[in-house]
Design a binder for these strands. Sequence first.
DNA 1: ATCATATTTAATAGCTCTATTAAATAGCAA
DNA 2: TTGCTATTTAATAGAGCTATTAAATATGAT
Lengths: 204, 204
Amino acid sequence: MIIKDDKEKAIVDAATRLFLDKGFASTSTTEIAKEAGCNQALVHYYFRTKERLFEAVFAGKFEAFASSILEISQEDLSFEEKLRLKIESHFDMLHENPKLPMLIAYELNTNPKRLDSMKEKLGNLPAKVFANFQEELDKEIALGNIRPIKIIDLIYSMLALNISIFIIGPIMKSFVGLTDDMYENLIANRRKENVDMLLNSLRP
Amino acid sequence: MIIKDDKEKAIVDAATRLFLDKGFASTSTTEIAKEAGCNQALVHYYFRTKERLFEAVFAGKFEAFASSILEISQEDLSFEEKLRLKIESHFDMLHENPKLPMLIAYELNTNPKRLDSMKEKLGNLPAKVFANFQEELDKEIALGNIRPIKIIDLIYSMLALNISIFIIGPIMKSFVGLTDDMYENLIANRRKENVDMLLNSLRP
DNA sequence: ATCATATTTAATAGCTCTATTAAATAGCAA
DNA sequence: TTGCTATTTAATAGAGCTATTAAATATGAT
């Protein structure tokens, strides 16, 4: 048999799907087992508790999510080009994981323990990267290329614009009655619009 | 006794607090009863099911939320001024109900039934108001005051910018380690920033 | 005061969920 | 093959949750 029948991975995959769809609290280990095609006890054999299973899923996803914001680009491009690329790649990552922002936002907002544990995990990485970024920003400001702005405001604007479409979008789609095509169109349009708005907002 | 000891209201209030804090699935009727200072059976006496209690809470909150977007302003002001007021009052409503966007977004995204029921409830109101708004927008576009834009994009931008601070903000506050004062400052700043970004994005 | 109705509680049925345990089975090294 | 370990399952303990029922208590009208 070439493909090893890896139940542990099947469980993580099933759990990921279900947690993303219905959230942590509304997903049972019984359901996860069924979705993974195994006995419910096996879920606990590999992960002991539902909480630990969630952490296994969540930590990985959150890391991918955070690194897409925090990683410093190396390319030798103009500031504007670098920023544009950053915004777009962040947007694309979200587009590939459209349900991730909702899960992360919800779990961190409703569960103080998870917020603390993620803060712990990240350590002073955010502060460090922010400081780096701010330096780069300040150079551009000194050159008069962009208006004075704090990095936290810029990052917040990017997060706000990029994340929201995947949270508000599905609701709008239903309320306004968009077809799948129209919806994909809306998303593609937002990708462009978000970049424009952000770059625009930096003009001196 | 002047103040009637209205347990029904106490139950709704307790439920509202708890649902906003921890979400629907993680809140039990037992907990609601304890918080409201009554027996658990009383919760079911008044509302029969937890689902119905949630709907009683949710419908009211959602209505307030939706109307803050949909209502048409009557004032005799310039388009820009009207828009500015709309953005600001929407922001202020959220500021007074900071946990509401998370609850609504989460419940509508993870529970198709609620999405359908809200869509039903709203009927064609969104389409109607959008059409009205678009007309007004088109007039300004024809005058060359603003660039061509679809109302759905404008509303989405407003929602994205205004809502996000109350979803991302608490997480940022923890990760970056902001004091309460710094956080309130950030929020006040976003109120201004959001208006600027939105009006900016309309320039021809 | 009496009765009817509304409110509130105690008790509990019935379910589902998490987690554990012990037994069965599979996989593999010697 | 035998025996050892890893995987998988069946069974179930124990807890909590929703919802109902019947009884107790409060309220208000006559």
